[in-house]
Amino acid sequence: MNKETTLNIVLMTILVAVPVLAWMSDEPFLVTLATRAVIFAIAGVGLNFALGFGGLVSFGHAAFFGLGGYAMGILAFHAQTYTPMMEWPFVIEGTKAMPIIWLVAIIVSALVALAIGMLSLRTSGAYFIMITLAFAQMFYYFAISWPAYGGEDGLSIYVRNEFPGLNTMDPIQYFSICYVLLLLVLFIVHRAAHSSFGLMLRAAKQNEERVQAVGQVPNRLYLIAFTISGAITGLAGALFADLNRFVSPTMFSWHTSGEIMVFVILGGLGRVFGPVAGAALYILLEHSLGGLSAYWHIYLGAILLGVVIFARGGLYGLIAGREVAHD
């Protein structure tokens, strides 16, 4: 077993041990904190699929995070007010069932990611960064100026949505749902990264000409990666909105895009479990530095600056060595 695998196991064990211990010692706040870390990890794993494996520097993943959040918000809002979402040409009702909400969040984010990807992938480099940022910003302003679902104030959902057989309002049970989803997403991303598609994608990141020479179309690989990436981040958005029972345009803001990127970088770019470490570290920093000073973003900025300039490779790079294992 190499260092990276050991680190993966230790990380996932800590991530489940902390909330279980907190639950046994009756500290629901820590359980919620761990749930946040798990949800951010899912969002980061999503971005990492495009950024780490495909080299697509998307600075607009807040668009998908927010879409997932609003998918949950809008469906649950119609269910709680007993108004149909659409009456013509056929009736669509809202719902409080988590599995349906997740499915809607994933499909909507995937479709939007496909559309944004098709436009943005016409360009590359700096243009790609700015365009993805601008598209996310478009959703942000749209959410603010569209009054039907709360506009700038956002949308509150009174009771967390339902999952068959579980009491989702119990913090440890909701944590379990999110943790299982994280494992599922990690499994899918691990398999995808090691499939022939994943190998081609990583090859395209390193050398597009050679990938073209063996008959692949790099842009098609990128588009698929971007779509999957958006779908995963959308799922995280739905879970995050359900955790807070609140959605607001802030989920679309570019700070959110930046934060998701920070999870990926703090953990280690291009490692399947990297964003999990990054999200956990971020929550840890937020919690410990936030207690130290109200201006904790200064310290976060300084740490991020240090990681970018001196410690490329993030936490995984420091502990498991710079090279990504070729297993």
Binding site: G301, A302, L304, V308, R312
Partner: peptide
């Protein structure tokens, strides 16, 4: 790296 470092500068 440029995006991340300048994002960090914004926070600061």
């Amino acid at each position: 790296d440029q995006v991340l470092a300048t994002f960090a500068l914004i926070l600061i």
